Simulated assay, not measured.
Amino acid sequence: MPFSPILHTVAETIQAALAPVFLLAGLGAILNVMVGRLARIVDRSRQLEALHLRSIGPERERHIEELRLIDGRIGMINNAVYLVVMAAVAICLVVAMLFVAELGNFQIGQVIAVTFIVSMLLLTGGLLCFLIEIHMSVRAIRVRSELLEPQKP
């Protein structure tokens, strides 16, 4: 039994939308990693806040410095999450526009292409923010030089 024209069109559109849908699955995995990282950063900030209240002198200054770095990391990972979510929204729009264009016989191929390009730019921005946050975290976990120097008698 041959496909009806509308069913055939829907089947072709689903095939065209398959790649962006797989991209959405990948974005979900990336977001899962980012949100997990954010949760760990928040946990560390809470630990430091408790230590900060009980510390004095150089230890207190060290806690303040790390808290400032953590605050920057939280902002950066929030930016990363925001940009990747916006990329996912743009991909959803691409999928929806593919169906609207095909079923309504609209000539919006350029709009769809531009939306896809915007989604890739948003994803790139999100990944760059994530990379910057990772770099910031490496700075935070370095062992202090005074701990590496041999103890003097």
Rank of each mutant, 00 (worst) to 15 (best):
L31W: 08
L31G: 10
M34W: 05
V35G: 01
R37Q: 05
R37D: 01
L38G: 06
A39E: 13
R40M: 07
R40P: 00
R40T: 05
I41D: 03
I41G: 01
I41R: 04
D43P: 03
D43F: 14
R44T: 06
R46E: 14
R46A: 14
E49T: 14
E49A: 15
E49S: 14
A50C: 06
S55Q: 14
G57I: 05
P58R: 07
E59D: 12
R62A: 15
E66C: 03
E66W: 02
L69C: 03
D71F: 08
G72L: 11
G72H: 13
M76V: 10
M76G: 04
N78Q: 12
N78L: 05
N79T: 08
V81T: 10
L83W: 12
L83T: 08
A88G: 13
V89C: 09
A90R: 00
C92K: 02
L93F: 12
V95G: 05
A96G: 06
L98C: 02
F99L: 05
G104D: 00
G104I: 00
N105L: 09
N105E: 15
F106L: 15
F106C: 03
F106H: 10
G109Q: 15
G109H: 13
V111Y: 02
V111E: 11
A113F: 07
A113E: 11
V114A: 12
T115Q: 07
I117Q: 14
S119Y: 11
M120C: 09
M120P: 01
M120Q: 13
L121W: 10
G125A: 15
G125I: 11
G125L: 09
G126Y: 07
G126F: 06
L128S: 09
L128C: 12
C129S: 13
L131I: 08
L131K: 01
I132S: 03
I132C: 00
I134V: 14
I134Q: 09
M136Y: 13
V138E: 03
